[in-house]
């Protein structure tokens, strides 16, 4: 009868696992459903292109959306080269020295630091010491710090997945380390690197706390036109609308959440697409 008993346990666990999975999905579905019911009717061209306003019916997310686009663009241009270069150093050049050990441990630690702490760091270093003020650039630099560890970890994993035999073959052909990295390692791992970067950026797009600390404003009348301009981003706009008493603003918040979700899903979709495309191309 022992075998029957084990099979029963097997079944019980299977259903328990299924329930847990479904629970997560149901919660997400209810949340998204709620938001969509409340906000979908509010989304139209005017909502996307209007400036913020005191009257909920006239308010739009243009400045917040453009702020997010600026943040995204600047953060990517700062964090991508820094993160990939650090990962290459740690993975390919870094020997097992004490300094590198400390670096590695700290990078893993950084990934666990609450985002608001990055905001405080950004406020002190970028806003005050560098004198950047509450600019898009200061915000992007702060978010770059936030996602740097994620990019580094993802890039290292992607680089590690390149077979040692390929590296050896390249070295044995008389290639230098840099030639091997540029010609073999990076092309083979680029899909993984890109996936990591896009996922990290989609996290950055959803951040509000560190940007509030750095000085992003709740009300900005114009979209930024240079990196030194004041800005706001969508999560902050949503936060601002949610905390207003009028019902119209909570509808606006729902509509803005839908737009933000759409952007994040789109980015994740692109990440998945690249991962699949590269995995098909590079096969050992």
């Amino acid at each position: 009868m022992g075998a029957n008993n084990n099979r029963l346990k097997d079944k019980i666990f299977q259903y328990w696992g299924m329930t847990c999975t479904i629970m997560g999905l149901v919660l997400l579905a209810v949340f998204i459903g709620n938001i969509i019911v409340e906000g979908i009717g509010r989304i139209d061209w005017a909502f996307l292109t209007n400036l913020p306003s005191r009257r909920p019916g006239k308010a739009g997310i243009y400045t917040a959306m453009m702020g997010s686009v600026w943040i995204l663009f600047l953060t990517a241009s700062i964090a991508f080269p820094l993160g990939v270069a650090s990962a290459i150093y740690l993975e390919e050049y870094g020997t097992k020295s004490r300094l590198n050990n400390i670096l590695e441990i700290n990078i893993s630690n950084l990934a666990g630091v609450p985002s608001i702490i990055y905001g405080l760091l950004g406020l002190e270093v970028f806003v005050r010491i560098f004198g950047l003020g509450g600019s898009v650039l200061a915000g992007a630099m702060t978010l770059s710090l936030l996602i740097l560890p994620i990019i580094i970890v993802a890039t290292r994993e992607a680089i590690k997945a390149v077979p040692k035999s390929i590296k050896e073959a390249s070295f044995a052909m008389g290639a230098t380390k840099w030639q091997t990295i540029w010609n073999q390692i990076l092309p083979s791992s680029f899909g993984g690197i890109l996936t990591g970067v896009i996922l990290a950026l989609s996290r950055a797009v959803g951040e509000a706390a560190p940007l509030i600390v750095v000085g992003a404003l709740a009300y900005v009348p114009f979209a930024p036109s240079t990196p030194m301009d004041e800005f706001t981003v969508m999560p902050i706009q949503i936060f601002n609308w949610v905390s207003r008493p009028q019902h119209g603003f909570s509808v606006n918040a729902s509509a803005a959440i839908i737009v933000l979700l759409a952007i994040t899903f789109l980015m994740n979709g692109i990440a998945v697409y690249f991962r699949n495309k590269w995995q098909k191309k590079v096969k050992w």
Binding site: P163, S165, I166, E168, A169, S170, F171, A172, M173, G174, A175, T176, Q179, N183, Q184, P187, S188, K281, V282, K283, W284
Partner: peptide, 29 residues
Amino acid sequence: LRKEIGMVFQKPNPFPKSIFDNVAYGLKI
């Protein structure tokens, strides 16, 4: 040194590139 002394490995390890680019690799680098 490695241009003078070539090496062939245990498991075939062509680069994930075209046949042409594989053979041309040493010259290109």
